[in-house]
Amino acid sequence: MIDTPAQDKVEDIEIRLLLEALYLKYHYDFRNYAMASIKRRLKQAREQLGFSTFSSLQESLLYNPDMLPRLLRYLTVQVSEMFRDPTYFKAIREHVVPHLRTYPTLKVWVAGCSEGEELYSLVILFREEGLEERTIFYATDINQDALSAAESGIYPVDRIRLFTENHRLSGGKTSLSNYYQAAYGNASFDKSLRRNVVFSDHSLVTDAVFGEMHLVSCRNVMIYFDKKLQNRALGLFNDSLARKGFLGLGSKESLRFSDYGSAFSDFDRSEKIYQKVGE
């Protein structure tokens, strides 16, 4: 059945009401996410969770607390891989790390950490470069299930071949197999990788800055935000970064046309790594 323009308009109203209910009831704010993206994910949720309309999904969300984590799995993107876009991590290794070596202590924020793949990539990179011991890593996400998965550090073993190749292409100095044990179809990453990590619930939409960082990596998160929300997130990163701190974005994200373009310089334009302008 093909949706008519009238049906589309009604669905858009239902979606806005659903997002408002989600915010008022649970304080998760998706109201300024890009509409096309949020509509696509909500349609998938509605169909797979067995609801005929967004209104019926909203009713269940309001009266059935078990519906919240189920819906969040659709609204928060949990697709990533270790050392995704290896050239990004190679640029951090070769060009950002020499600057970070000059600090006696370091703080790194992985914003929107999903299930932890990017976090572990950075921890392993920092260990190989001799910076792990002086670094505190903050891994944040709005999805508690994702944070729990990140904290467990367990991934299907069939993903390890891709992770291993990415690690090699990123300039890895050891074998990725040094960092995990494989058993029963899963690869469990070593607990020592989490000893300097703080996992925390944090929303780029509603929460504030919580510390001074030397590197913020937030990749492939803001592409789902509208311009207003992108500016809010970039404002948080700007406020949280130390002078001449570094910001890494996803390959399709940019500071151009944002309110904070002048606050950063292009450190590595091709890899979307920016440096906060010094005062």
Rank of each mutant, 00 (worst) to 15 (best):
D8P: 00
I273F: 05
E59T: 14
K39W: 09
A182N: 09
M35T: 15
T174G: 12
S200T: 06
R41C: 02
A139P: 01
E129T: 12
V157N: 06
F126T: 10
L236W: 03
F257S: 14
L57D: 04
S148D: 13
E115D: 06
S258K: 03
K228Q: 14
A208I: 10
V79L: 14
F257D: 15
I15H: 12
Q7W: 04
E271T: 10
D85M: 02
L57I: 03
E14V: 05
T4A: 10
H202I: 00
R84H: 04
Y120I: 01
L249A: 08
G261C: 11
E279G: 14
L18Q: 02
I160N: 05
Y26W: 01
E59P: 09
C113F: 05
A111I: 00
G116P: 03
E117V: 11
L62S: 03
F137M: 04
L131Q: 09
L255R: 09
V216A: 12
E271A: 14
K43T: 06
E11R: 14
S152T: 11
Y28F: 13
L131P: 07
M82K: 10
V198H: 02
T53C: 04
N166R: 12
H95S: 13
Y274W: 00
Q181T: 14
M222Y: 01
T140C: 02
Q275N: 11
L122A: 04
R41Q: 02
A21G: 07
L22N: 06
V157F: 01
F83H: 06
R194K: 12
S200N: 07
T135I: 01
I136G: 03
S37Y: 02
L215Q: 07
Y88G: 12
G171A: 07
Q144L: 13
G130E: 08
D66G: 11
S251Q: 13
Y88T: 15
E20W: 06
A242I: 02
V157S: 10
A6D: 12
S170H: 07
T87W: 08
R219D: 09
K252W: 02
A45R: 01
V110G: 01
M67T: 09
E129V: 05
S177G: 09
I124Q: 07
L125F: 06
A91L: 01
L75R: 12
S56V: 13
A263V: 03
A139K: 02
T53L: 11
P86A: 05
F237L: 00
L17I: 05
G185I: 08
L169Q: 14
